[in-house]
Amino acid sequence: MRGVWTLFRKEILRFWKVSFQTVAAPVITALLYLLIFSHVLESHVQVYPGVSYTAFLIPGLMMMSLLQNSFANSSSSLIQSKVMGNIVFLLLTPLAYWEIFLAFLAAAIIRGLVVGLSVWLVALLYVDLPVAHPLLIVTFALLGGGMLGALGIIAGIWAEKFDQMAAFQNFIIMPLSFLSGVFYSIHSLPHFWQQVSHLNPFFYMIDGFRYGFFGTGDIDPQISLSVVGVSFLVLSWLTLRLLKSGYKLRG
């Protein structure tokens, strides 16, 4: 397991060495969203009874930052080493495909958690946040980070240039995370768009995670947990298959 541990440590150090860009920047972005949206909507919107709009927003922003950064960690590491060519040093090692998967996935989850947690800590300065079901919070955070970490590996394997990676990020990850109910409850949407939101796995991650704080949400957290759990397993299976086949990595 020393090989996996080394790769995991390297992936952690890789983002930690540029933590302004990988941790501080996304935290600042999340806080700007918080400041602007809560300033504009605080007095107009109340999504759940007894929960201020600012408080409502924080878990969504935490989860959104966590997801985006988990994705960014594995995907950017892979695309960078592919474009630079130094991925050969990984491919020359005796590490098995599943060991590479484990190390990249764990590092992606850690980066997501560090960013998510930082958003929470800073947000605590502004507003008190209840914690109704801590276990649910942790479970959704781990599964969400894992799901996006796996998706990042898939994108990193598939993309051959930074442009393709940017497309993946801007056309898939961004719309899915912005339209997942971070800024609103999907009950405020017209019926059709509520149905569309149900097809978005990000919605379940955000809603389940938020339920962990307030004990209330748009749907039953057990449904969310099942959707997120199954999505994670499917994506992990797909990632493992890609890595095992050597697709775009070993000719």
Binding site: R2, T6, L13, M84, G85, V88, L90, T93
Partner: peptide, 27 residues
Amino acid sequence: VVPQELVFDPFFNVREMLRFQAGYFGL
């Protein structure tokens, strides 16, 4: 294997890179 192209990981120094490389092999 010493590859033909001058490829490198821009995040690390020489010693870190060598330690990581040995670590992948379980050392």
